[in-house]
């Protein structure tokens, strides 16, 4: 069965759309990540125009993060003040991202920028994840050989300069008294990148909150999820206004698949070990990055690019 996508202006197999949403949902449930960074490339590789892919994954991320954010909120594991500031500064990032997105589209350079950004981004994240998890596995094995229990990895450096910045604000829930500047910077940057690339950014935000701002792990996931819901909602509206490339039909198909897949993934994920999971995720991310890199380097099928810039 096929359904016509009104904004992408092409038909798509409903089952294929559900399967893609489902697979990515499964992966996101399995690894505890949003999955936008996999879903957007998947759509691009299956022939959806990159602009529509990015803009339509944005509301899908809202849907897939909502139930999680609510669950953490009910358990009181959300720092509302921190999330509020992140969302507020993130809204500006989303506006800037959507404007740049529309501008690049009218210059005919959007596809290239998305491809390069994804290559760099996925290679970095994938490489780091793989490296970190392999090191953790080796450490565990070495510790076992010595007959000790493995010590958890130490946090990164103390980043004292971040805590010396002015304009300090108290975050009661996180038991923090830190400058508001890095919070704003973080919110803006991640939302900007997320809006431009169609990713939630939880992948970067969670480690940044833990290592840079020292947010306790008990509230970090819930706060990050709430931030993603808020910022991606703003980004959806901004994409709708700036480039009119949000395809509601495509987004809905992806949401249905994603919501279902995430539940299955989460239940499978509980039976696997953390480091192995992360190594697997790293490999997956590297593979998608490599695919983007190949597309950049290999001669294209058509030597011309045609972009409709106006009616």
């Amino acid at each position: 069965m096929e359904v016509y996508l009104p904004i992408a202006e092409m038909p798509i197999g409903v089952l294929m759309g559900l399967a893609m949403g489902g697979c990515v949902g499964l992966i996101s449930g399995l690894f505890g990540v949003g999955g936008g960074f996999l879903l957007t490339p998947l759509l691009i590789f299956s022939g959806i125009p990159p602009s529509v892919a990015v803009a339509s994954v944005t509301p899908q991320i809202v849907a897939s993060s909502t139930s999680g954010a609510l669950a953490y909120f009910r358990r009181g594991q959300v720092d509302l003040k921190l999330a509020g500031i992140l969302i507020l500064s993130g809204s500006f990032g989303a506006i800037a991202g959507a404007e740049l997105f529309a501008l690049l589209g009218s210059l005919g350079q959007l596809t290239l920028v998305i491809a390069i950004s994804y290559t760099v981004f996925l290679a970095t994240i994938g490489g780091l994840t793989l490296f970190e998890s392999v090191r953790a596995m080796m450490r565990t094995r070495a510790a076992e050989r010595r007959g000790e229990t493995a010590l958890p990895a130490r946090n990164g450096g103390t980043h004292g300069w971040i805590h010396r910045l002015p304009l300090k604000v108290r975050f009661r829930r996180s038991r923090l008294f830190i400058s508001i500047l890095p919070v704003i910077g973080l919110g803006f940057t991640i939302s900007f990148l997320g809006t431009l690339l169609g990713i939630g950014g939880g992948f970067i935000l969670v480690p940044a909150l833990i290592y840079l701002l020292k947010v306790p792990t008990s509230v970090v996931v819930g706060t990050s999820l709430l931030q993603i819901v808020g910022v991606m909602a703003v980004a959806t509206v901004m994409h709708s206004v700036a480039s009119q490339s949000v395809d509601a039909v495509l987004a809905f198909i992806l949401m249905l698949g994603g919501v279902f897949g995430a539940q299955v993934g989460a239940s499978i994920g509980r039976s696997l070990r953390g480091e192995q999971l992360r190594a697997l995720l790293g490999l997956l991310v590297l593979a998608v990055g490599a695919r983007f890199a190949l597309n950049l380097v290999l001669p294209p099928a058509s030597l011309f690019a045609v972009t409709v810039v106006g009616p």
Binding site: P59, S65, S67, V246, A251
Partner: peptide
């Protein structure tokens, strides 16, 4: 486009909530 954006967001929030 503005109304459309809000509608898509609402759709996403409801789908996510109901799914959960």
């Amino acid at each position: 486009p503005l109304l459309y954006g809000f509608l898509v967001v609402t759709l996403a929030l409801v789908t996510g909530y109901v799914g959960g």
